[in-house]
Design a protein around this nucleic acid. Sequence first.
RNA 1: CGGGGCGUGGCUCAGCCUGGUAGAGCGUUCGGUUCGGGACCGAAAGGUCGGCGGUCCAAAUCCGCCCGCCCCGACCA
Length: 573
Amino acid sequence: MKFTQTFIPTLKEAPRDAEIISHKLLFRAGLIRKLSSGIYSYLPLGIRSIQKISNIIREGMKRGGAQEVLLPLVIQKDLWEESGRWQAYGKELLRFQDRHEKWFTIGPTHEEVIVDLVRGDVKSYRQLPVNLYQIAPKFRDEIRPRFGLMRGREFIMKDGYSFDMDEAHANVTYQKMYDAYNWIFQQCGLRFRAVEADTGTIGGKFSHEFMVLANTGEEAIVSCSACGYAANVEKAEIGYQESAAAADSAPAGPAPVLVPTPGKHTVGEVSAFLQVPASDIIKTMIVKADGGFVAALLRGDRELNLIKLKNALNADDVQLAGDADCMKLTGAHAGSLGPVGLSVRIVADLEVTTMQSAVTGANQDGHHYTGVRQGRDFQPSVFADIRNAVAGDACPHCFKPLEITRGIEVGHIFKLGTKYSRKMNAEFLGENGAPQPFVMGCYGIGVGRTLAASIEQNNDKDGIIFPLTIAPYELELIAINMKDPDIADTAGSLYEELLRDGYDIIFDDRDISPGMKLKDADLLGFPLRIIVGTKFKNQGTLEIKVRKTGEVVTATRETLRETLLSLRKSLLP
RNA sequence: CGGGGCGUGGCUCAGCCUGGUAGAGCGUUCGGUUCGGGACCGAAAGGUCGGCGGUCCAAAUCCGCCCGCCCCGACCA
């Protein structure tokens, strides 16, 4: 492709609303433009990269035994009512009516459609497994779209769904998809990690998220370099080698003392005011669990993990209570709560059991207790790991210190089981002749997000550094001065040759200053760059620059192909 | 949804407080000089100042309503 024949509107400055680096660079390099909040157009370079990622996904899916389909974008309400999600999905589901005032949605995900499709045509276990996927736009009416392609409302996603006759077969399919995902992200040239994830309300023990490692990632990943354990912080367990009942055997100290702490609400404020470390404070949070209330206790410097709490309580729905509920239950506002004298059920984090003389809220505004002791002054009914892991906590498998890194979720696979097949009455006849529901799995990849994540991970001050496999073009040819006939002619014929050789090449044939071409080349981030310039005029040499390393290799026209081949090879994943 | 901010040429922004001629840089067009890191000289095009209404002799500027966009929002207990 010649630069002058395509549409690559590069920009010196990013628009003001671009916050993160990938958003800025996608915009400045002319890969995307915004139409509306969270809604983007893909320009020629953007769609090329998206297509390369899509093709890698297709290859990976093929290897994993899945077939491509294309499902409708617009879905009628009754299917969503069958699954119960018309009510359950909430405001993220875009709903609208056609001219007959019939309700529809633009699919944010396609379980209903795929189940409807398969139940109509798959009637026997002999037809299983069925594993179908599509790569298509989706729409989720996010409360707050942000970060460009990272969290848009309309976005391109690969979503796949598998149907198996039983758990054992579903597990095999799951494993194939797990392997396929590893292959796909590796082919995309990403540094990533598959981590164990919470399965949410779906249940089952298999769920993995594929996280691209990047400091700007929205998710925290807990990992152990000693044994390879890795999990989303929502899920990550903490290793405790012995259940600490130490507090019970320690000698009892003096009874709790009520101290005034006027205007001190946060752990930080109380800690500073009373001159005690945050780790000696027990913070008390009132939580609404399935309609009832419980008090969750944590060391002052820890964060509550609602998912762990939900699992510990065996509850379906857990959320923090509002200030009004706190007031009603304890007689104090949030900020002065404590477990002493509380009437609600108490759930204590395992760490709390080792605290023998703690500071807690006194359930009167502006007062705290000191010298509070678990077992004597209050009695939790449940002890559980309910906090977020932090760096240095023990690995649940090998007890070595855990590390925390950040990641961007680009893929998620999990077992759906029979949740949808039961609700939507999707059954087949098994070997025993009895009808039974399909055992399903579901597998997603954010395609646009993968592009954004790659840029988030691979960039420098000058611009994007594309991995070879997903770059819009692999190779850029630059003629330093198009007005110089020697240079222009050489570059022109070189372009034709390389094109014939099958290179994925773009030729910057614009008649503009060298500075602009070179700046644009850095910004656009194609992996390899050939420069035809004064060195060619004077010495007959061409320059090949590797964007990733900055390495410059010179070649003659004779050695160019060989040099390109080996450089290209060095950039393969 | 709650809180905050913004909306002026394609992009980044000034002007608004204190009403009176709409500005700069980048980009674009034309001519010329340049040609290895967003070059230089000269000329030019391009703006319903987000929309509607109000106040006023006069509104980008003051007031009201609306629209759009952006940021923050359990972890305070």
